[in-house]
Amino acid sequence: MLVFAISDKGGTGRSVTGTNIVYRHALQGNDVCYLDYDFGSPTAGAIFSVSGVARGTRQNGLHEYLRGECPQPRRVDVWAESDREGLRTRPPGAGRLVLLPGSEGGGELSALTDEIIGRCVQLFGRLEEEFDLCMIDVSAGRSFTAELVLAATVRMPAVPFRWLVFHRWTRQHIIAAAGLVTGADGLLDVGTRFGHDADDLRDRIRYVRTAVLEPDSAELVGLRDEQRAWLSACDSELRELAGRHSVGRTAMLGKIPLDPVLQWREQLITDEDVLASKIANAETAAAFDELAKKIVDDNAWEGL
C-alpha cells in the first residue's frame, strides 16, 4: 500500500503526523518505510532523530535517484541508526522501520520528464514488494512532486494507493484543503488529466485534522465561560464550513489533538513520552495509533 501525505499549506504538521503514523504502524507489527519526497526541505531525518540525515542525505538521496544520478536511493534503518535511545532498539514484534531520506540541498523538482516518472514507478514497485506500508511525504500545496506521484500511480494500476490530506482546524485551512483536492489544478483535476478516474481517485482521498483543540478537552478547563462559549461557537461554524466544502466528518479519517510536544518540537511520540516522562498526552499517542490502523482498514475507506 502506498500512502501519499500532502497538505494544503506548510506548517500543518503533515510530516510529524505522517512519521508518527508510520512509527505506530511499525509497532503494530508491519514493515513500513517513509519516503521524504518533500524535496524543498527534506527534514524527516530530524523527526526520526537520525542526525546524519537530519536535513537530507549528502549522497544517494531520493532527489539524486529520481534524476538518475544513483542506481538506488539510500535507506536508513531507523531502529539501528536513530540517536534517540527509545528508538534504537526494535521493540519485540515491531516490523522494519526504514527511512528514504531526500537529498541535502536538493531543491524542488523543476520539471517532470518521462525518465523521472519511470524511476519513480520502479522505486514504488520495488518498495511495495517488501513493505506493508510506504508513506510518501509529498510537499505542501500544488507541486511537480504531487504531479509526479499522480503520473506514477496511473502507470501501476494494480498497486493500491491512498491519499491523506492534512489540514488544521481553521477557516483558512479548511478552504485551502478543499481547494487542493477539488479546485482548479487540484489533485482531482491534475489526476484526471494524467488518466485517473475522478470518482475512483476521490474515494482514495481522506482528510486528517491536525492540532485540533476540542471544546470539551482538559486543556480548556481554566478558560472563562465566555471564552469557552466562543470556542464552541467557532467549532460549530467550522464544522458547518467543512461540511459545505466536503471536508466534513465522512471524508475525515481522523484527527490529532493539539499537543504541546508537537507544537515545540517535531518528534515521534513514543510510549515512554506518554508513560514515563509524561511530556506527551496519551490522547495524542492513541490518535496516532488509531490512524495507523485506519489507514489500512478498508471499512474506513468505503466509497463516499
Partner: peptide, 8 residues
C-alpha cells in the same frame, strides 16, 4: 500484484 506476503 497481490502477493500473499511482503518480503525483501
Amino acid at each position: 500484484r497481490r502477493a500473499p506476503f511482503k518480503i525483501p
